[in-house]
């Protein structure tokens, strides 16, 4: 998880930090491998825009988890643009595809502003293993870097050692962690908000246990957590982040739907984008349920959680 713990990576760690754009590109390199290189190869070998080309394009989009519906939408929009602009060159098709994707993703780019409330309460939710606790660690680091005071609430009272994991993140970021001894996550988070208000803390990050949308009693529990947060501060939670693992396929859509219905999700975090062939699911999300993607996780370092930017994202996909 942390490169500085890896003996094999110790050398690399001493080199100057690569810029954010470089890291994004590196993280998305594999997606490019799946999407862009194939696209380039495809465009290079072709001289005219024909059905076969569209079919291959369809296959590439599907393989990148864009999904049947969104792929259909993208191709249709691409065809329309080709007709409208009377494109005949295969090279022009590439720019047109970029534009279509950027247009589709545009509604998702709305960065999170953590001001206007003190404390600004951010609640995190998601399925098991999505990366909630790790995301909290990275968010804590980010807000500390911005000079804000942060408090963590250990609302995952279920999973073995989840509390210890959050405590470790707290220690690394020199941030206080509120964790109860009992098993009631709502009470722990309630206490954290009370205590944060008393101490003038800027941001409260509330962890919750991972749960699948099919576990109805756990979905009921998280609804309750949200209600109880509202009791600690009627305006809270100010942000409900759903953490999605980019490895997940079309099920991500169902997850967004289920959590949104239960909690009113206001933002998404897409984690583990540093693997292979990911990112397409964002397009499927944009098509179905346009909830802003607040952050994407592109690496294992503390600073590898970054705001989602459509132009950079699309650009990186096609470089």
């Amino acid at each position: 998880m942390f490169s500085f713990f890896k003996s094999a990576k110790e050398q690399a760690e001493e080199a100057p930090k690569p810029s954010w754009a470089q890291r994004l590109r590196a993280g998305l390199a594999r997606t490019r491998g799946a999407l862009s290189q194939k696209v380039t190869g495809l465009f290079a070998g072709r001289t005219k825009i024909d059905e076969e080309l569209y079919e291959e394009l369809e296959a590439i989009l599907l393989t990148a988890d864009v999904g049947v519906e969104a792929t259909g939408h993208v191709l249709e929009a691409l065809r329309a643009r080709v007709r409208r602009e009377r494109l005949t060159e295969v090279g022009e098709l590439r720019d047109a595809l970029k534009a279509v994707l950027a247009e589709l993703l545009a509604p998702l780019e709305r960065p999170l502003e953590v001001s206007g409330h003190q404390p600004f309460v951010i609640m995190l939710a998601g399925i098991n293993g999505a990366g909630k606790t790790t995301t909290i660690g990275k968010l804590a680091y980010r807000y500390r870097q911005e000079g804000r005071s942060v408090m963590l609430a250990a609302g995952d009272t279920f999973r073995a050692a989840a509390r210890e994991q959050l405590a470790e993140w707290g220690a690394r970021n020199q941030v206080e962690v509120v964790s109860g001894t009992g098993g009631d996550p709502a009470a722990v988070i309630f206490d954290a908000i009370q205590s944060a208000r008393a101490r003038g803390i800027d941001v409260v990050l509330a962890d919750t246990a991972g749960r699948l949308p099919t576990q109805l009693h756990l979905m009921e529990e998280i609804r309750k957590i949200r209600r109880v947060i509202g009791k600690a501060d009627p305006s809270a939670p100010h942000e409900v982040l759903l953490v999605l693992d980019a490895n997940i396929g079309q099920n991500a859509l169902l997850q967004v739907q289920a959590f949104d219905e239960a909690l009113g999700v206001t933002g998404l975090v897409l984690t583990k984008l540093d693997g292979t062939a990911k990112g397409g699911v964002i397009a499927a999300l944009a098509k179905r349920r346009a909830i802003p993607v607040r952050f994407i996780g592109v690496g294992e370092g503390l600073e590898d959680l970054q705001p989602f930017r459509v132009d950079e994202f699309v650009e990186a996909l096609f470089e």
């Binding site: 998880m1 942390f2 713990f5 890896k6 790790t134 660690g137 999973r159 073995a160 050692a161 989840a162 210890e164 994991q165 405590a167 470790e168 993140w169 690394r172």
Partner: peptide, 17 residues
């Protein structure tokens, strides 16, 4: 798992369960 915080602790709890 010497990387993820509290991963060892998690397995310890799981083993006990």
């Amino acid at each position: 798992d010497v990387y993820r915080p509290a991963a060892i602790e998690q397995l310890k709890t799981v083993a006990a369960q």
